[in-house]
Design a protein around this nucleic acid. Structure first.
Length: 514
RNA sequence: GGCGCUAUCGUCUAGGGGUUAGGACGGAAGAUUCUCAAUCUUCAAACCCGGGUUCGAUUCCCGGUAGCGCUACCA
């Protein structure tokens, strides 16, 4: 009777996210983490983070940090953590078990032998000539003599099939004849991904492997390994891939910073909005709900809601990909921010909309707390009290947190940046009207309390006196005070700005006009 | 090349043998408003192709096509 993976806690799933730390945290990886996490939380299971760092050549500490940073920003947690590189003994033990059962063999063929030199070169490569049939005695002798070898799985050649049921893709069957004798151990004794992954999944009693669909065909190999080592394979659930608008798999090289999670953080996405967005790619709650909180996602999540077709992340492809600055993990910590004043329209419109929705759902206090660091980085003198008054004026006008810098800039500066005086001229008016409005506004505002209602009354009355429409009255003032035509509502703006600044800016505008 | 997976508006998706094929984003038009935004209303927009099965297929089956994935001593 094979050991069962569910022995320790029947019914409670144990899932894992197992990234290889070879680059920054990718949006696809983040989504895989999230789906695992959702599944664990939904079913009161255990979320495990395992660094699959068996590729010593390509692993970097910077990458590990990038992954941790990204997950931390997203507010995602896990219950257990492992490093594959520290578990080599376990992996080798499993290899040994399989070898002793005769289900694996030593392959003394030098690494990087070209396909044409391999057996079955006219079709698919399955195994290296001669090695599979080497006698045990001969194999032992050559190994003892110090000849390097890779350990390969002896895939059955008796016409059988490998089968499993995927929670997303259903019944999966493949003829063993189509599976090559894949490596378990490299010639330097290091385990391959397939071996290490299965050994750890078995040892950690993983109950559900939820991972990218790019592993669907690898799963047959994994089933073979689990069974050879005497374990019941876990449940599998493969996720459709995230692809670029051109249909290709997201890649840092081709698509640049839009595939890095930190790009979204630095651009001013809310972590909960970003998670929400990712969840909607390849999964549906099937009730037309889109905007959901973390808890709502947990409550709604199920493997049945996952679909099978790849999902496009609909970002705008950069016109000149060669100019795209790709943040390397080492840069991201400190300098990552300035590479990324990524223009708003590079992001998926749905992500932007969801972010705006989540922003609107925040309380003024909460939103202020998130806005303040961004503002203070550029305008250190802005206080929390002041920001608290500004936030309500821009909450419905920003899609990204960073938009605060352009939406509310005029609140933060002493002196307005230069603007075209022609902007001061209202609809159906001329410079004379503008001058008249500003002059009158100056007089009126000098003697009015800077509160919404008094301002409203005073300015409307002034418009009437001048015989112009309210809009014609407000526009020159708005431009004088904000430096542009599109801005938050006027009276609220003046109230926050205060009498002194307002009058000073109107003065300056009048000088510009003449 | 071999093997596997997939295919509903531009995008994310719901649906499923008989429907006006639903929702959302984005787009367009309008309402509202001191501008912008938000909000509301309306409009345009899809079942890859060909064979079956069936009284009837977008839905089920087969084939094609296309896309993607795997095919490493990468993960």
């Amino acid at each position: 009777m094979p050991e069962t993976l569910h022995a320790a806690s029947p019914g409670k799933p144990r899932v894992r996210f197992a990234p290889s730390p070879t680059g920054f945290l990718h949006v696809g990886s983040a989504r895989t983490f999230i789906f695992n996490w959702l599944y664990a939380r939904r079913n009161h299971g255990t979320m495990i983070l395992r660094l699959d760092d068996t590729d010593v050549e390509r692993n970097t500490d910077a990458s590990v940090n990038s992954i941790f940073d990204g997950l931390k920003w997203l507010g995602l947690n896990w219950d257990e953590e492992y490093k594959q590189s520290e578990r080599g003994d376990l992996h080798r033990k499993m290899a040994e078990t399989i070898f002793q059962k005769g289900l694996a063999y030593r392959d003394f063929t030098p690494a990087h032998t070209s396909d044409s030199e391999r057996s079955g070169a006219q079709g698919t490569w399955l195994f290296n000539l001669g090695m599979r049939e080497l006698s045990r005695a001969e194999s032992d002798r050559r190994a003892a003599a110090g000849e390097p070898f890779a350990l390969r799985f002896r895939v059955p050649r008796d016409g059988g099939v490998v089968h499993f049921t995927d929670a997303v893709y259903g019944e999966q069957t493949k003829a063993a004849a189509d599976i090559e004798d894949f490596a378990l151990l490299r010639s330097d004794g290091m385990p391959t991904y397939h071996l290490a992954s299965c050994a750890d999944d078995a040892d950690l009693r993983i109950s559900h492997i939820i991972r990218g669909q790019d592993h669907l065909s690898n799963t047959y190999k994994h089933i073979l390994i689990f069974e050879a080592a005497g374990f019941t394979p876990p449940q599998f659930a493969h996720l459709p891939l995230l692809v670029a608008p051109d249909g290709t798999k997201l890649s840092k090289r081709r698509h640049g910073p839009v595939v890095s999670v930190t790009t979204y953080r630095d651009a001013g996405f809310l972590p909960e909005a970003f998670i929400n967005f990712l969840c909607l790619l390849g999964w549906s709650p099937k009730n037309d709900r889109e905007q959901m909180t973390r808890q709502e996602l947990i409550d709604a999540f199920s493997l049945e809601g996952i679909n099978r077709a790849n999902a496009v992340v609909n970002f705008k492809e950069s016109a000149e990909p060669s100019n795209v600055v790709i943040p390397t993990p080492s840069e991201e910590g400190e300098k990552g921010r300035n590479l990324l004043s990524a223009p708003e329209d590079t992001f998926d419109p749905k992500a932007l909309w969801l972010n705006a929705e989540h922003i609107r759902g925040l309380t003024i206090d909460d939103l202020t707390r998130r806005l303040l660091p961004i503002v203070q980085e550029k305008y250190p003198r802005v206080t929390s009290e002041k920001m608290l008054r500004i936030t309500p004026l821009i909450r419905e006008r920003i899609k990204l947190l960073r938009d605060v810098l352009t939406a509310a800039d005029f609140f933060f500066v002493d002196q307005l940046p230069p603007y075209d005086p022609a902007e001061l001229i209202p609809q159906k008016g001329d410079a004379a009207v503008a001058a008249k409005v500003l002059q009158r506004a100056k007089e009126v505002l000098a003697n009015v309390e800077f509160k919404h209602d008094p301002l409203d009354q005073a300015l409307r009355a002034a418009a009437q006196e001048l015989g112009i429409k309210a809009g014609q009255m407000f526009q020159p003032i708005r431009v004088a005070v904000c430096g542009r035509k599109n801005a938050p509502p006027l009276f609220e703006t003046l109230e926050v700005l205060g009498k002194e600044s307002t009058l000073a800016r109107i003065d300056r505008a009048m000088k510009k006009l003449s």
